Amino acid sequence: MGMMGEFKEFAMRGNVIDLAVGVVIGGAFGKIVSALVDKVIMPPIGLLVGGVDFSKLAITLKAASVDAAGKEVPAVVLAYGEFLNAVVQFVIVAFAIFLLVKVINRMHRKPEPAPAAPAPTPEDILLLREIRDALKKSA
């Protein structure tokens, strides 16, 4: 089998296709969560803490300037507001995945227990059977 045949076999495995579908759905879910955090959750929180737009929170470490050649040098900014938004997005995604795994685990059937082994025959019954068998042989 050539390299293309091996690649086709690899690509058509169920796990690879499942992974590809998961990545696409995960990307779409990430966009939904980003929109939820940026447009729905953070604005009311910002309003409650004094009208702050978290996405714009930043510390300017070095202001923008113009160098000797007349070229503009951009400012060096520590954008911690965007980091806060990313943390909130992560918490939401992690919680959603937790709930999903919890539901999937609940849906899985518990394996049926194996049938119990028969109880061992008591010793007195075994001795009586031995006596019976011995009597049958001698008769």
Rank of each mutant, 00 (worst) to 15 (best):
M3G: 07
M4Y: 08
M4E: 04
G5W: 01
G5C: 10
F7G: 02
K8A: 14
A11S: 08
A11Y: 09
A11L: 14
M12F: 06
M12H: 02
R13C: 01
R13Q: 11
G14R: 10
N15Q: 04
I17W: 04
A20Y: 05
A20C: 07
V21C: 07
G22I: 01
V23E: 13
V23C: 12
V23M: 15
V23S: 14
G26P: 00
G27I: 02
A28Q: 05
A28S: 06
A28Y: 07
G30K: 08
K31C: 01
K31P: 00
K31W: 10
K31N: 07
I32Q: 13
I32F: 14
I32P: 00
V33Y: 00
A35W: 12
L36I: 12
L36H: 03
V37Q: 00
D38H: 03
K39R: 14
I41G: 00
M42Y: 09
P44C: 08
L47G: 11
L47K: 14
L47A: 10
L48V: 12
L48H: 08
V49K: 13
V49G: 14
G50Q: 10
G50N: 10
V52R: 00
S55A: 13
K56M: 12
K56A: 12
L57F: 03
L57I: 00
K62I: 08
K62M: 15
K62Y: 02
A64F: 06
S65C: 07
S65V: 07
V66M: 11
D67N: 15
A68L: 11
A69P: 00
K71S: 05
E72M: 10
E72R: 11
A75S: 07
A75V: 06
V76H: 01
V77S: 03
A79L: 01
G81K: 03
L84Y: 11
N85K: 11
A86C: 05
A86K: 12
A86D: 07
V87S: 05
V87Y: 01
V87G: 04
V87I: 15
V91Q: 04
V91E: 02
I92S: 06
V93I: 15
A94K: 11
I97N: 03
F98Q: 06
F98V: 02
L99D: 06
L99S: 11
L100W: 07
V101R: 02
I104S: 11
I104P: 00
I104E: 07
I104C: 08
N105M: 13
N105G: 14
R106H: 13
M107C: 07
R109Y: 11
P111F: 00
E112L: 15
P113N: 06
P115K: 10
A116N: 01
A116E: 08
A117K: 13
A117D: 11
P118I: 00
P120E: 11
T121L: 13
P122M: 03
E123T: 04
D124V: 03
D124F: 06
I125Q: 15
I125K: 10
L126H: 00
L126V: 12
L127Q: 06
L127I: 08
E130T: 09
E130I: 01
E130S: 08
I131Y: 13
R132N: 14
R132T: 14
L135Y: 04
L135P: 09
L135T: 08
K137E: 04
K137D: 09
